[in-house]
Each structure stands twice: as C-alpha cells, then as structure tokens.
Simulated assay, not measured.
Amino acid sequence: MTLEKFADIYQRAASRKGGEDKLELMLSKPLAKEQLTQVTNAQWLSAFSMKVFQSGISWQVVRNKWPNFEEVFFGFSIEPLLMLSDEQWDNKAADSRIIRHHGKVKSILANAKMLHEVSLQHGSFSNMVSNWPAEDITGLWTFLKKHGNRLGGNTGPYALRQMGADTFILSGDVESYLRNSKIIDGGKETKRSLTAANQAFNQWQQESGRSLTEISQTIAFSIGDNRV
C-alpha cells in the first residue's frame, strides 16, 4: 500500500476551503512542550471529566453546566477530592446543579486517582504527556484507556487535544479517510488499526514537518461534506 502524499491531501483540503490562507486559519497548533508542562492536574481532571460527560450528551449543554461542576468539585483540585467519603461522592452525584449521572461522577474520582499516581512517578501528569514519544501517540491513548476511567475511544484523545497535547483524532472523517485508503480495517481501536494509523501519521509528519494536530485536521477538511 502506498500512502497518499500529504502535499496532495493538503491541496485538496485547501481547494475545498477556499485556498491555503483560509485553510491555515482553520488549523490549530498544539502547545510547545514548555507550555504543556504548565498544565495543572486540576486542569487535566476538568478536561477529562468534561469529555466524559459530553459522551452521549450535547457538548454545549455540558459546557453551559461546567461552571457548576467546577464549583461542586472544588475546581477539580485532586487532593480534596481524594479525601471525600463514598457518601459524599453519592451526594455530589445527586446535586441538582450538575448533570446527575452516578457512573460519570464516580469517574472523576477514578481519574483523580490516576492523575495522582502518575504524578508520584513523573512529577505531574503534564510531565508524562510532554515526554511521551511523539511517534507513539496511540500508546498514550491506550494508557488512558487502561489506567483511566471512561477515557477509551475518542474521549481521551479529544481531552488531550483540548489541553494542547499534539495528537491526531480518529474522528468520523479521519476514520473514513483511513478506511478508504486501506490504512485501517476492522475495529478502529484494535492494536493493529492504531499501529497502522500511527505509522501513517508519522510518515505524513516526516514529509510535512507539521504537527499531528494539523495533519489530522487537514485530512478531515479534505473529505466529507465540508466544502466552503
């Protein structure tokens, strides 16, 4: 199988979006490593929790409620959350100020524990993420799925992207492109599919010098019903 050149993908996306200048304005860039290391554990927990709650619910509804979540959960500060009793967690899950979903609320505790444990090893979760091998970003996805709670699928990758970590995302358009190009087949979360997708993105990154984030967005803009 021969990969399509990224330059060709880029030109197709540009033609669909009204030219290179307009396409460039639509592409977001990840944080530099030095900036990423400044992201706090509380910010990570808030991002993970938001994406967990957005799964299966209108994203805007969750965003509108999020100031209430920040208030109820101490700004997602890890230490006080880890000190809560089971009864206190049950009470928070029933709080009318937030979206009441017991399982998703308890995921906040589970992911707080994960962040705490990672920080004991790496100093902070951001240190681990910023030092994760760029050529194995799907390995970080797998870590989140294995050690976090409800962070499988696109939930973990979307949270990483939101916080400025450099990652591609297997959105509907990107997955469709990879399947049509015979890069992946079968389940998109299988080790085989993740490895194949990662290898393809690594090659496009070497060709273009662009971030995984920009490459992923460019692919999405190059296909599907998204013309100007």
Rank of each mutant, 00 (worst) to 15 (best):
L84S: 03
N111M: 05
K188E: 05
R150Q: 12
A42T: 03
A134G: 04
G56H: 04
A110R: 14
D185V: 00
V118K: 05
K146L: 11
A94I: 01
S49W: 06
S130D: 09
P157L: 06
G152F: 00
S211R: 05
A7V: 14
L3G: 05
F73D: 08
E87A: 14
P157E: 04
R210G: 00
T155G: 06
N226M: 07
G209F: 08
W204P: 08
S77P: 00
I98Y: 00
R100H: 07
S193P: 12
K145A: 11
T218V: 11
G224D: 09
M163S: 13
L82H: 03
R97Q: 08
A42N: 02
S85P: 09
W44Q: 08
S124P: 05
E214Y: 04
T167M: 04
K104C: 06
A13N: 04
M128W: 00
T2Q: 15
Q38M: 14
F48A: 02
E71P: 04
A159R: 13
Q43W: 02
E70Y: 01
E70N: 06
H116S: 13
L120D: 09
F143G: 01
Q205A: 13
L212H: 11
A13D: 08
L144M: 06
F6I: 10
D166T: 13
T142L: 14
W66G: 01
N111C: 08
S49E: 05
Q60R: 13
K65A: 03
S124A: 10
K188T: 00
A110Q: 10
K182M: 09
D173L: 12
D86H: 12
I137Y: 07
N91Y: 05
G172N: 13
A200H: 03
G209S: 08
R192D: 15
Q203C: 10
G156I: 04
